[in-house]
Simulated assay, not measured.
Amino acid sequence: MDLQCEIVTPMDIIYTAPVGLVTVPGEKGEFTVLKNHAPIISVLSEGKIRVIGKDGQENFFDCKSGVVECKSNKIVILIHE
């Protein structure tokens, strides 16, 4: 099973796709989530979310604050952009 990523704002789902990796600005520092990552929930700080899709395309999303949850190869990022 691929790592699935969904990025959600209060207004819309702005990204949903299988990904190779996701890097987020955690409250205690930036961290990267890869396939089979241990379950985690973290508060996000202001910064950039970096997503590399399965096709190798790199995307960046602005984040003012938010929350990320990763479990069972699904990462959901709730952000205020």
Results as ranks from 00 to 15, higher is better:
30 E>V: 02
53 G>T: 09
66 G>R: 06
78 L>S: 14
1 M>K: 03
69 E>Q: 09
25 P>K: 01
15 Y>C: 09
48 K>M: 11
38 A>M: 06
39 P>E: 03
16 T>Q: 15
13 I>F: 03
1 M>Y: 02
49 I>F: 03
58 E>H: 05
12 D>I: 00
17 A>N: 15
65 S>Y: 09
67 V>Y: 15
30 E>A: 06
29 G>F: 04
1 M>F: 03
59 N>A: 14
55 D>F: 07
66 G>T: 05
57 Q>E: 13
10 P>R: 07
36 N>E: 07
54 K>E: 15
4 Q>S: 10
25 P>V: 00
48 K>R: 10
29 G>T: 04
61 F>D: 11
9 T>C: 13
36 N>T: 01
27 E>W: 00
68 V>D: 02
28 K>W: 04
78 L>V: 11
11 M>H: 06
72 S>W: 03
54 K>I: 15
4 Q>A: 08
80 H>Q: 13
54 K>T: 15
59 N>K: 15
20 G>R: 12
69 E>Y: 08
58 E>L: 07
11 M>D: 11
81 E>I: 01
23 T>I: 08
15 Y>T: 10
30 E>H: 06
70 C>T: 10
55 D>W: 04
7 I>K: 11
23 T>C: 09
30 E>Y: 07
1 M>S: 05
29 G>A: 04
8 V>E: 07
5 C>D: 01
45 S>R: 05
10 P>K: 07
70 C>Q: 09
73 N>V: 06
20 G>W: 03
54 K>M: 13
71 K>R: 14
47 G>N: 08
60 F>H: 13
76 V>A: 12
1 M>E: 01
67 V>G: 14
17 A>V: 09
51 V>R: 06
77 I>N: 02
11 M>W: 03
72 S>A: 10
16 T>M: 12
78 L>E: 05
39 P>W: 00
30 E>M: 05
72 S>V: 01
73 N>D: 15
69 E>T: 04
54 K>L: 14
51 V>S: 08
75 I>Y: 01
78 L>G: 13
15 Y>H: 13
48 K>Y: 11
1 M>I: 00
69 E>H: 07
51 V>A: 06
80 H>N: 15
63 C>D: 07
34 L>S: 00
45 S>L: 01
38 A>G: 01
62 D>M: 09
73 N>W: 08
45 S>N: 12
63 C>K: 09
4 Q>L: 10
64 K>M: 10
34 L>Y: 05
